[in-house]
Nucleic acid binder design. Structure first.
Length: 629
DNA sequence: CCCGGAATAA
DNA sequence: TTATTCCGGG
């Protein structure tokens, strides 16, 4: 029932959920926090401070009040709000900065910036302090950026601006709703919102970045849609700064080839296990062999669409950041307070623009899931299988695991092929729903790489590391020596950063993106910061394992898992290798929630516009849906 | 203050 | 699922 599966495989439900898109669904606390952070008006109550994603709640009661107003929960208070924030610890959206009162830190690594493409944390334009979020690398877990790219990336991550407008406005509006209380706050928000309105610059180029590991998922999540017929000439990069965000858009170098390369990896994702994933990066684009009916071009389109959607919906800074081949001229010197050059920032998506252009799309219904034209393949099998087996037995009892996966089992059992149902060409509305990409993607990406393709992958990897503790809030020094083994305590995962990018261009960013695919060869040498050079593979593994550990735990049942892991606990040490190993069981899936995001981003080809517009509409609509209390 | 479990609403 | 509520404990 739930899954529409009639026609083919449908994704499991979780795949459809828009997890955390601000527009869709109710506003989530972290979105709200971000929103406040970006508004100068609220700098007196909450502001960025310290490291990268660190912020301090200067007036807890006020923040609580605002939140309560938005959610129409007049009874809200800091105690409750903070409880909600604490839930984010597990999700790894936030963590507490120890020792500092009312200070929390976003784990942007994992976050999905959903609709907030780039948050400018530092927006401090007005406020001096607010800017700090630039990642200096100093933070505890962050490794010093050995490669420039890293540096940039980080900075980029944070900042970005502008696109927010569309989002913002929606949020604001929708959210406001009228509570009976009518807190004044709303009005403010609205005002603010109203202002930005105008379309944001339309498309600007984005810099595409591909994540090192390709998210297979993304492929999976294909979206039909985007038939972009055209060729994609890339539009000239226009840079025009938005009012909000001052960041210049970085000029994109010719993007031309991007797609191809990108695709290739993607291709690799093909579900069929038999295709092994080829490590070699070459771009062979043609991966198409699998059952897909698509040819590479199609895939391309899909990917593009996907990307867009990604942009629109969730962005994960991570995705952007690390992979870009951005080259930065400077060595690393993080300048904490001010963002150095942001050459890169990615331009936001142009969604808003389209929005404005297309006035109303009118029908909204279409947007959402209602129509997926194609279905994607289910997540990799993995755990489920196991579970299934065992679960059968167990199931009777209770099993926590639930059903949602039933589909999976089927899937797993079934042929690997993905079934995609392309719609014919649809143009009109195909939407791609991107829904969540969050954790899952992350997981998947990693896992998938190997897991999917190579089922056996899981395996060992144990020992991951423990996390150190991050506790100290302070950053040590940027130049600090790298820890012997990095870890990411919380998550910061930058764990494996991407391999450094080859110095491609010179200063400009190159866009290469995709190439990054992680090749071991290259990567290794560069390894970040010196963190020891860990072979990519290892890194992946590590990451993987880590994720597993964490996410796995977190994943589905986060709560439950948590319990399990209780001992390890976060901060330190914990290693539970066992868990890690065990992790194998979990491989995959689900992520659910939290938000995170995304996997790949491609540079948006101009052609996409169409798609984008649609997306926009969709997003717009989504946003509309706010509930009003 | 901060942490999380538990129950529960939406 | 994501909060909200309530609450005992550091």
């Amino acid at each position: 029932m739930k899954t529409p599966g009639d026609t083919g495989f449908a994704f499991p439900e979780w795949a459809y959920k828009p997890e955390s898109s601000p527009g869709s669904r109710q506003i989530q606390l972290w979105h709200f926090i971000l929103e406040l952070l970006r508004k100068e008006e609220y700098h007196d109550v909450i502001a960025w401070q310290g490291d990268y994603g660190e912020f301090v709640i200067k007036d807890p009661d006020e923040v609580a009040r605002l939140w309560g107003a938005r959610k129409c929960k007049p009874q809200m208070n800091y105690d409750k709000l903070s409880r909600a924030l604490r839930y984010y610890y597990n999700k790894r959206i936030l963590h507490k900065t120890k020792g500092k009162r009312f200070t929390y830190k976003f784990n942007f690594n994992k976050l999905v910036l959903v609709n907030y493409p780039f948050i400018d944390m530092g927006s401090g334009r007005g406020v001096p302090q607010s800017a700090p979020p630039v990642p200096t690398g100093g933070s505890h877990f962050r490794f010093p950026p050995s490669t420039p790219s890293e540096v940039l990336s980080s900075s980029e991550e944070l900042r970005s601006p502008g696109m927010f407008s569309s989002v913002a406005r929606r949020m604001a509006r929708g959210s406001v709703s009228d509570c009976s209380d009518g807190t004044s706050t709303n009005s403010e928000l609205e005002e603010a919102v109203g202002v930005d309105e105008r379309g944001v610059g339309p498309d600007r180029a984005f810099r595409g970045l591909l994540p090192p590991r390709l998210p297979h998922d993304s492929l999976f999540r294909v979206y039909g849609g985007a038939p972009n017929p055209a060729g994609l000439p890339r539009p000239a990069p226009r840079v025009h700064p938005e009012p909000l965000s001052p960041f210049p858009v970085s000029p994109l170098p010719g993007p031309g080839g991007l797609l191809a390369p990108t695709l290739s990896p993607a291709l690799s994702m093909t579900p069929t296990p038999h295709l092994a994933y080829t490590p070699s990066p070459s771009l062979s684009s043609p991966m198409v062999g699998s059952h897909f009916s698509f040819n590479p071009e199609d895939m391309k389109h899909y990917l593009q669409a996907h990307n867009q959607s990604v942009y629109n919906y969730h962005l994960s800074p991570r995705a952007f950041l690390h992979y870009p081949n951005i080259v930065i001229p400077q060595p690393h010197r993080p300048t904490p307070e001010k963002p150095p050059s942001h050459h890169l920032h990615a331009p936001p998506l142009a969604l808003s623009h389209s929005l404005s252009q297309h006035p109303g799309g009118g029908e909204e219904g279409q947007l959402l899931t209602s129509q997926f034209k194609f279905k994607l393949q289910p997540p990799p099998l993995g755990r489920k299988q196991r579970e299934a087996g065992s679960s059968l037995a167990v199931s009777a009892s209770s099993s926590s695991s639930q059903s949602s996966f039933t589909t999976n089992s089927v899937l797993t059992a079934g042929p690997p092929k993905i079934k995609v149902e392309p719609i014919s060409d649809i143009e009109s509305e195909e939407e791609v729903e991107v829904t969540d990409l969050s954790e899952e993607e992350e997981l998947n990406r990693e896992d998938d790489e190997r897991n999917i393709f190579t089922p056996m992958a899981h395996h060992h990897h144990h020992q991951i590391n423990s996390n150190n503790h991050q506790a100290n809030a302070n950053s040590s020094s940027p130049s600090a020596p790298l820890p012997p083994h990095y870890d990411d305590p919380d998550d910061d995962e930058e764990v494996f950063k991407t391999p450094a990018t080859p110095p491609i261009g010179s200063g400009s960013l190159a866009y290469p993106l995709i190439d990054l695919k992680t090749e071991p060869g290259q990567a290794a040498p560069i390894s970040p910061g010196g963190t020891r050079c860990i072979p990519l593979k290892l890194r992946f593994k590590r990451r993987w394992s880590k994720d597993q550990k964490m996410e796995a735990d977190g994943d589905r049942d986060e709560a439950k898992d948590k319990k399990v892991r209780a001992e390890g606990a976060e901060e330190g040490e914990g290693n539970k290798q066992e868990k890690g190993v065990r992790g194998g069981e979990m491989e995959n899936e689900r992520g659910r929630g939290g938000g995170v995001i995304l996997g790949l981003v491609l540079p948006p080809p101009p052609t996409q516009r169409r798609a984008s517009s649609e997306l926009q509409r969709a997003t717009a609509q989504l946003s509309l849906e706010n509930t009003g209390c």
